Amino acid sequence: MQYASTDGRGRPVAVSGTVVVPRAAWTGPGERPLVAFAPGTLGIGPQCAFSKQLAGDYQDAYEGGNIAALLRAGYAVAATDGAGYLDGQVHPYVSGADAGHALLDIARAAPRVPGSGLSAAARVGLWGYSEGGAGSLWAAQLARSYAPGLNVVGVASGGVPGDLKVVAKSLNGGAFAGFLLDAVIGMVTTHPEMPFDELLHEEGRTAVRDARTLCLVGTLARFAGGRTENYTRDRLTLDQVFAVRGLDGRAWGQIVETNKLGTGVGPAGSGARHEIRFPVLQYRGLLDEVIPAETEEATRRAYCDARVPTQWNTYLGDHLLADFQAVDDVVRWLGDRFAGRPMPGNC
């Protein structure tokens, strides 16, 4: 499907995604619940869109097992590709507002799909891991202001890159440096007025062109070990890139900071900029080699300190394995939220 959304700068944009509804009738109370799902990193090439993977066999698609588990539980799924996978677009990778809007809007659009049998009054859960974990938490933070009519009852977010500066410093020069290049392209897509192309030498421009065509495995293989110094004309370090300013005086580092999760959050009635009126599940792998524990723990602490009802789970796995290890726990947790059961949290 295609549906209307809003980009990170408040402009209308078309986004793609997939709605999947179990064939079996819903036998639980009320309307069939809906889970709005944000996939993890797939690469920013247009062929990498999650819906194109699901068009084959969702059991074989990356994170297709998450979708299958939700369907077995009887829940409908609205899985966004995220913005930027349609012709002529570029995916605004790790842009918080873009991701949050896209996830909330597919939940609003799903009941309008002919034959879905879904209700606009249905209870909605949000779920995502890694890039999708950040996207689902951004959707949670924006839900009250951007989609107040949605009946969101909970959000499950795992492997969350909550502070992009911390993540960038960890990725730079490492095995997963391709994620950093995708993030740079995402930031430039959202902020084209900022200096970028003039910072690159020809090898850097070639790297950007290549990254825009690659999916996950190709991105990691092509850019393993890459550093900002390898691609910039003056061999700029990451901190020097963060210090580069645009014509309006803002630095790249300040723009990256606007995507930090956990700032300005609070529970219902708190008056916080981002009031979260439903429980939150956050989780991570204890052996995560992609997202630093420092930022995952900090996002959890920020939510707990803000008195947002939060459950924190950990798994003895790396970044990829923890995604699979958590599936059954997440589906049960969402089921409890759909049933209206209390969640005391474990802050």
Rank of each mutant, 00 (worst) to 15 (best):
residue 264 G to L: 13
residue 137 L to M: 15
residue 329 D to L: 05
residue 100 G to D: 06
residue 134 A to R: 08
residue 66 N to M: 14
residue 304 C to T: 15
residue 189 T to Q: 13
residue 251 A to S: 15
residue 315 Y to F: 12
residue 136 S to M: 09
residue 217 V to P: 01
residue 139 A to D: 08
residue 225 G to S: 03
residue 267 P to T: 12
residue 328 D to R: 08
residue 24 A to F: 02
residue 181 L to W: 07
residue 99 A to Q: 10
residue 147 A to G: 01
residue 165 K to R: 10
residue 155 V to K: 00
residue 30 G to D: 03
residue 327 V to Q: 12
residue 329 D to N: 14
residue 183 A to K: 09
residue 84 G to T: 03
residue 221 A to W: 01
residue 48 C to K: 01
residue 140 A to N: 04
residue 166 V to M: 06
residue 288 D to P: 04
residue 145 S to C: 09
residue 288 D to H: 13
residue 154 G to I: 15
residue 301 R to A: 00
residue 23 R to Q: 05
residue 186 G to N: 09
residue 134 A to G: 10
residue 257 E to P: 02
residue 105 D to I: 10
residue 212 R to Y: 05
residue 167 V to W: 09
residue 49 A to L: 14
residue 115 G to H: 06
residue 136 S to Y: 13
residue 330 V to R: 15
residue 334 L to W: 04
residue 304 C to Y: 11
residue 202 E to L: 15
residue 40 G to F: 08
residue 262 G to P: 08
residue 239 D to Q: 06
residue 317 G to K: 04
residue 143 A to R: 04
residue 242 F to W: 14
residue 76 A to Y: 05
residue 25 A to F: 05
residue 174 G to E: 08
residue 9 R to Y: 02
residue 136 S to N: 11
residue 344 P to M: 07
residue 194 M to N: 10
residue 139 A to F: 13
residue 297 E to D: 15
residue 209 R to E: 13
residue 43 G to F: 02
residue 177 A to I: 07
residue 166 V to A: 06
residue 39 P to K: 03
residue 183 A to W: 05
residue 26 W to V: 10
residue 272 A to T: 15
residue 124 V to Q: 10
residue 256 V to A: 11
residue 12 P to G: 09
residue 63 E to G: 00
residue 10 G to K: 05
residue 323 D to M: 12
residue 2 Q to M: 11
residue 71 L to I: 10
residue 29 P to K: 14
residue 157 S to M: 11
residue 161 P to T: 05
residue 113 V to D: 04
residue 291 I to P: 05
residue 123 R to V: 13
residue 219 T to M: 01
residue 168 A to K: 11
residue 289 E to W: 10
residue 128 G to R: 07
residue 190 T to H: 03
residue 235 R to G: 00
residue 34 L to D: 00
residue 7 D to Q: 00
residue 120 A to G: 14
residue 186 G to R: 02
residue 141 Q to F: 00
residue 119 S to L: 00
residue 295 T to F: 07
residue 204 G to S: 03
residue 41 T to W: 01
residue 153 V to A: 08
residue 92 P to S: 09
residue 90 V to Q: 11
residue 211 A to H: 13
residue 135 G to M: 06
residue 89 Q to L: 07
residue 307 R to P: 02
residue 122 A to I: 13
residue 148 P to R: 08
residue 105 D to E: 07
residue 65 G to Q: 02
residue 38 A to Y: 15
residue 311 Q to P: 08
residue 330 V to N: 10
residue 10 G to F: 03
residue 106 I to F: 04
residue 119 S to T: 07
residue 216 L to S: 00
residue 27 T to D: 03
residue 246 G to E: 00
residue 336 D to N: 15
residue 334 L to G: 04
residue 284 R to S: 14
residue 246 G to R: 00
residue 42 L to Q: 06
residue 131 E to I: 04
residue 187 M to G: 01
residue 158 G to I: 13
residue 35 V to R: 01
residue 95 S to N: 15
residue 229 E to R: 12
residue 20 V to K: 09
residue 238 L to H: 08
residue 36 A to R: 12
